[in-house]
Amino acid sequence: MSSTRTVTVASSQGLHARPAKLFVEAAQASGAQVTIAKGEKSVNAASILGVLSLGVEKDDQVLLTAEGENEEQTLDSLEQFLTTDHDSAS
């Protein structure tokens, strides 16, 4: 079993720099196996190099897949993370 969710990224820097690091930390902390995909390419969301190599920009659509404990809850929190602009606050 696994759950998926399509999310539009709101962060003005996309998933680079600080937002990428925070996203990977959140994925690692979830306890679930999470992948993030942009187009054809899918990577382990716990891998900062994988996430960076996707080159996700603002307004890109990404597909999140979670497998394991608390799938829906994990997807909820990661979706909320991605739809927040983390750069506007700083």
Binding site: R18, K21, N44, S47, L49, G50
Partner: peptide, 16 residues
């Protein structure tokens, strides 16, 4: 701090 912590994550990256 962010740069260094991101580097620490790179060192432990599962893909790597």
């Amino acid at each position: 701090r962010d740069v260094l912590e991101a580097q620490a994550m790179m060192a432990q990256d599962p893909t790597l």
